[in-house]
Amino acid sequence: MQLTLNVLVAASTLALMAVGFGLIFSTTRFFHFAHAVVYTGAAYLTYCGSVQLGLPLVIAVLLGVAGGVCLGGLMEVGLYRPMRGRSASALTLLIASLGTYVVLQNLVSMTWGDDVRMLQSSTVREGIEILGGRITPTSVLAIAVCVALLAVVTLVLRRTGLGRAMRAVADDAELARIRGIRADRVILATFAIGSALAAVAGILVALDVNMRPTMGMNALMLAIVAVIIGGVSSIGGIALGSLFLAAAQQVAIWQLGSQWQDAVAFAILLVFLLARPQGLFGKPLRKVAV
């Protein structure tokens, strides 16, 4: 039971990160590595608000999420959009994104230091007992928030005009423009939603465990594995991919020791890339239709 709870907790924040990354990837077709720093930045902004400025935690969390959304949006408007305007390739965008990540991660290090920081300084809490396993209230919150947010995002994608436009741009961006969609706005909205998910994930992890400047990249790497396992194009697939990956990692920690968890994750990635690159539920990535 404890194992199941651990899997759920790990999978929930992983799924938020992965769905955010997947949404951005499917509309823009490039690896937005700087997504990692949205996760980190939101956690540190919350830390700044809550611990350093002494704001109420709820306000600090909202500040962190808003900061994360602004950060992701600014990257799109200030960096990716002008580059797309000059028809930069996906590789160029990836490198620019990686560069942005490095700069901003170092900025976080310089501002707050490389030490581990805690949002909740209280002593180790007991946790509540559920069916023989122990779980902290924060972890329960993390699972609930994750399920709720994924449901909301699914509804937005399936039921709203914005969601339909997002799927259309992901499907064929030029055709979307031909139909009169302002693709740039749709992409910005995608960045905002994806960044909000990353920010929430980062803050939840910071609340539940702790934070360090490199936390974002670790989370993003796992998220990318989850996206590849689940298949890029479906939220349900990505959620199941996250669950599967989290389960594999927790089993690895339990059986082999915690130093093996990342090795197991990337071994799974390799297996999928070789055997089923489209993921469990995804379709093969299409090239532009002729």
């Binding site: 339909r164 436009a165 799927r167 259309a168 499907d171 055709l175 979307a176 002729v290």
Partner: peptide, 23 residues
């Protein structure tokens, strides 16, 4: 109507038509 009879393959036929009148 661009070359290649392009439609949004992941969208339903109805959603495609809605996109046709999105403006």
């Amino acid at each position: 109507v661009p070359q290649g009879n392009r439609v949004f393959t992941d969208l339903s036929v109805r959603e495609n038509l809605e996109m046709g009148g999105v403006t």
